[in-house]
């Protein structure tokens, strides 16, 4: 187990270096000189040269990369071309909203997905199973930005149960929860559908296993068979899907934040792409990608803890 963790952590470090290099390179591949963007149209040649010098843009590419990396390790992502504010501070101030949204969405996805998947498997080939299968396929196919707009139209505008958008109150308050519910459903629906499909197939596989038949033959109560013998084993692949989905939800927040006007990292990124504010885009991409691989690492380790066979592979 320790070997597996060490191996995965080493791989993670290499991966993070690769991610940081791609993100760093993106600014150099993009058309336009950053110094021109910062200087603006009125800047003289001398001004532009001064900016280039101060940013270290005249240094060789690898020197620039290591300077960038050094900054990133110390939490310095540079400063915004547009607002001149520190990228780290801008990201930090918006990150809690993104994280709250992602966590709320994965909770929605787990509750709906696992419940629907298990009931479908237990009532295999019933009307519930059929309906859940069709709904989960529809759930994967619904554009979440559209679902968000429809939810706003129905529940915020017509019924006025929830606010139209924004995430300004702390999530533990009633108002905060109300603000979080519609975005969480919007973002969590696709993942709920995927988790439901995985839970159903994993559960169906386990229900037919010999040891489950043996448990029933021994006279173990049906509830115990389902909760202890089936669920525990069926959840192993489901946990992986949940973990992977949490990573994807972090990426998915970008769209949901835009629909619900939530001041998160995703919305900041879209605004920055439109303004060609590269340091901000780089910072946001680096932050989300790092979290994504960290979540995957945790999933790998948890998976190995639950199923010790993984550690020996």
């Amino acid at each position: 187990m320790a070997g597996l963790i060490i191996r995965r952590v080493l791989q993670l470090i290499l991966l993070l270096l690769g991610i940081s290099f791609i993100v760093f390179l993106s600014m150099h591949i993009a058309p336009g000189d950053p110094a021109d963007i910062i200087g603006g149209p009125t800047a003289s040649k001398e001004d532009i040269e001064g900016i280039r010098e101060s940013l270290g843009l005249n240094e060789p590419l690898m020197v620039q990369y290591f300077d960038y990396l050094k900054g990133v390790i110390h939490g310095d992502f540079g400063f915004s071309f547009q607002t001149k504010e520190s990228v780290s501070e801008a990201l930090l101030s918006r990150f809690p909203n993104t994280l709250n949204l992602a966590i709320a969405s994965i909770i929605v996805a787990i509750v709906i997905g696992v419940t629907a998947g298990i009931i479908s498997a237990l009532k295999h080939n019933s009307w519930f199973d059929g309906a859940a299968t069709v709904i989960s396929l529809a759930g994967i196919s619904i554009p979440n930005f559209w679902l968000g707009a429809i939810l706003i139209l129905v529940f915020a505008v017509n019924l006025q149960w929830f606010p139209v958008g924004g995430l300004t109150e702390p999530f533990w308050t009633v108002e905060g929860m109300k603000q979080l519910i519609l975005p969480a459903i919007t973002l969590g629906t696709g993942s709920a559908a995927m988790i439901a499909r995985m839970s159903r197939s994993a559960m169906l596989e386990v229900i037919r296993a010999d040891y489950v038949r043996t448990a029933r033959a021994k006279g173990v109560k049906e509830k115990t068979v389902i909760m202890v013998h089936c669920l525990r084993n069926a959840m192993i692949p489901v946990i992986t899907v949940i973990g992977l989905n949490f990573g994807f939800l972090l990426g998915g927040t970008i769209i949901t934040e835009q629909v619900f006007a939530i001041n998160g990292v995703g919305r900041l990124m879209i605004e920055s792409i439109a303004a060609r504010d590269f340091p901000m885009v780089q910072g946001a991409v680096l932050l989300v990608a790092t979290l994504f691989v960290l979540v995957n690492l945790v999933v790998d380790i948890v998976y190995a803890l639950i199923d010790p066979r993984i550690g020996f592979e």
Partner: peptide, 12 residues
């Protein structure tokens, strides 16, 4: 290592 939509946005 990049969530798909994030990679697409970086490229754009």
């Amino acid at each position: 290592a990049f969530p798909g939509i994030l990679l697409a946005m970086l490229i754009i």
